[in-house]
Design a protein around this nucleic acid. Structure first.
Lengths: 137, 137
DNA sequence: CTCATATCTATAGTCGCTGGAGTATTTAGA
DNA sequence: TCTAAATACTCCAGCGACTATAGATATGAG
């Protein structure tokens, strides 16, 4: 039996976050001690580790809920789980692409090295005038 | 003179967002019509375009407030503006690095192509078992 | 038994918007 | 000039994924 603090230490998920996951339906309401404190089994520790890992990968609470529901039916085909992960991969790739554009624009903006005044600062001018941009964000 | 709707159309910033920026102190409270509607000058249109651009680049409201404050003192040295942009560039680069790790892990996870059951699905197993990861997130 | 530590619930705050309700104003056409 | 449509007003609630606080209660070691 683990207390909520044990779970927190073992998974690196903060205590209020564990309670939040319970509220969101990712973790089932666990048994309670005489004095109403949460008491978890190993199964729930593993489940929380799963959630943690999926969150680290950036999956939404919603997506994780779906994956957890799927994992309760090991006999079904896994196309759906594959779809969730594949879609997420696509969105990660999109984010990377967008951030790369920002990176290159910021690089150009930052090329001015601060040894003059605001009046002719490239950072300020570039932000004021969108037409100075190379890309099409 | 522009109405709030004109500003919105010309900058692509939604009307409630413009009011929000005013509340957050990025835009000054503009003049009002007889009937209490906001009426903007060209200056404010330009200022909103600046804000929009900076937000597109991912700068926080806080950072933008600082840049706007700086731009009101064109005689000062611009080291501070440079610092804000440079710091932001660093954080964009960090995000890209993190996302690339996720990308490669998701690629490995997704390699299973959905033609079997949940019980032996690599997506589900990989999420449950962190030790299957190559990287150290 | 005492006391420090841990946990409980409920609620509010974070960021950057976004949307709705209900009311008032502006503007274009008949 | 009148009316109807479009626009704008304020205020407040909600999003996602937590995080933090307050004030009360429970647990475990000495």
């Amino acid at each position: 039996m683990y207390s909520i603090g044990d779970l927190s230490r073992r998974t690196g998920v903060k205590i209020p976050t564990i309670r939040y996951y319970e509220q969101m339906g990712l973790l089932e309401a666990p048994e309670r001690s005489e004095g109403n404190q949460r008491r978890y089994e190993k199964r729930e520790l593993e489940r929380l580790a799963f959630i943690r890992h999926a969150r680290d990968l950036g999956l939404s609470i919603e997506a994780i809920r779906d994956l957890l529901a799927l994992s309760r039916h090991p006999e079904r085909p896994c196309g759906e789980a594959d779809r969730i992960a594949t879609e997420h991969l696509a969105s990660v790739r999109e984010k990377i692409a967008r951030l790369r554009k920002l990176e290159s624009e910021l690089e150009r903006i930052v090329a001015c090295h601060g040894d003059h005044t605001i009046g002719d600062c490239y950072v300020i001018r570039a932000l004021a005038d969108h037409s100075m941009c190379g890309t099409d964000h």
